[in-house]
Amino acid sequence: MTSIAPVMRLRETVDHFLSQFRGQRILLYPNPGNAGDCLILTGTVAALDRAGVQYSVIPRQADVTGATVLVGGGGNLVPLYRDISDALERFLPRAARIVILPHTIRGHSRLLRRFNERVVVLCREAESLKYVRRINPHVETALGHDMAFHIDAEHLLARTDLTVRAMPIIEASLATAGLSLDSMRAMPRVRFMRTDIESTGTCSAGHMDLSATLGGVSCVASAEITTFTLLKIVSTARHIETDRLHVAIAAALCGVPCDLHDNSYGKNGAVFAASLSSFANVRLVESSRPANAWDRLTPDERRLSLRRDLRPKRIVKRIGFWARRLEGMVSNSMSSRH
Results as ranks from 00 to 15, higher is better:
135 I>K: 12
136 N>E: 04
138 H>P: 00
139 V>E: 10
142 A>F: 08
143 L>P: 05
144 G>D: 02
144 G>R: 07
145 H>Y: 12
146 D>K: 05
147 M>T: 14
147 M>D: 01
148 A>C: 03
149 F>W: 13
149 F>M: 09
151 I>L: 13
152 D>Q: 01
152 D>E: 13
153 A>M: 07
154 E>K: 10
154 E>V: 13
155 H>C: 09
156 L>R: 12
156 L>G: 15
157 L>S: 03
160 T>Y: 14
160 T>K: 15
161 D>M: 03
163 T>K: 11
164 V>A: 15
166 A>C: 04
166 A>Y: 01
167 M>K: 09
171 E>T: 12
171 E>V: 10
172 A>G: 00
174 L>Q: 03
174 L>P: 02
175 A>Y: 13
175 A>T: 07
176 T>R: 11
177 A>R: 08
178 G>S: 01
180 S>V: 01
185 R>L: 08
186 A>P: 06
186 A>G: 10
187 M>C: 11
189 R>Q: 14
191 R>I: 01
194 R>E: 00
194 R>D: 00
194 R>K: 06
195 T>K: 11
196 D>C: 02
196 D>P: 00
196 D>T: 01
197 I>H: 13
198 E>M: 02
198 E>P: 04
198 E>C: 03
199 S>L: 03
199 S>R: 13
200 T>Q: 11
200 T>E: 09
201 G>D: 08
204 S>I: 10
204 S>V: 15
205 A>Q: 15
206 G>K: 08
206 G>A: 04
206 G>P: 06
208 M>C: 07
209 D>G: 08
